[in-house]
């Protein structure tokens, strides 16, 4: 009796392994690739000359004053490691968290002397994935004076570009309104010319 069941266990292991462990993901890959090729391959984004500059869903480091800067990242050692996603995992009583935030705050205040209002909390808090590609509209607009100054353009034009990139809540209800940092920066380059690679 139990021997029969043991044999069944072994056979069921193989059958399910092949069925749901191999056939299912492979079939899904084929079907998804056919219907949604862009998304299935990573929602990659190109610049005007057709070079892939990143994924529309993955944050990347932007340090230049002329670019919109994303939230701090704890992914990988230097941050924004798209093959090593991670949050900071620093707890609410953590001294390290306090120090990191204080340091970022100092830097932001220095870099954004003309910004209006206090520094948005988002800009000193690391996201959960370390690859959060978004900013809230407020946190993006807060950076507009700096971007305008670095690019030597009117701040209103920068604000217009950011505002044009605001995505509303999904189905009007879900989530929060947001701005995709990479898409804004690509739009900025498109309008005001690409920033030279060498500076900074």
């Amino acid at each position: 009796m139990l021997r029969t069941e043991l044999l069944a266990a072994g056979r069921a292991t193989l059958v399910t392994l092949i069925g749901v462990g191999l056939a299912y993901p492979l079939v899904t890959t084929a079907v998804a690739g056919a219907i949604f090729p862009q998304q299935a391959a990573g929602s990659l984004v190109g610049d005007d000359s057709g070079n892939v500059v990143g994924s529309g869903l993955i944050a990347q480091a932007f340090g230049k004053a002329g670019y919109l800067q994303p939230r701090p990242s704890a992914a990988g050692e230097k941050g924004y490691d798209a093959a090593g996603s991670s949050g900071s995992n620093l707890g609410p009583t953590s001294k390290a968290l306090h120090e990191r935030a204080a340091k970022d705050l100092q830097r932001l205040l220095q870099e954004n002397p003309n910004a209006v209002g206090p520094v948005p909390a988002e800009l000193v808090t690391a996201s959960a994935s370390g690859l959060d590609p978004h900013l809230s509209p407020a946190a993006a607009l807060w950076q507009a004076p700096r971007i305008a100054r670095a690019r030597n353009v009117d701040e209103a034009r920068v604000r217009t570009i950011i505002e044009a990139n605001i995505e509303g809540r999904d189905l009007l209800v879900f989530g929060e309104p947001r701005v995709n940092v990479l898409l804004v920066n690509r739009a900025l380059d498109r309008h005001f010319g690409r920033l030279p690679l060498a500076t900074r």
Binding site: A32, A40, A41, L44, Q60, K64, Y67, A82
Partner: peptide, 29 residues
Amino acid sequence: LFLVSQGVLQNLLPYQEVTTLEGVKQVIA
């Protein structure tokens, strides 16, 4: 399939290397 439509990956590609607007290389899983 719904998740893929929202942007979830579904491929067997090796990790992709891209050059960002700032000229830095980023490897995307």
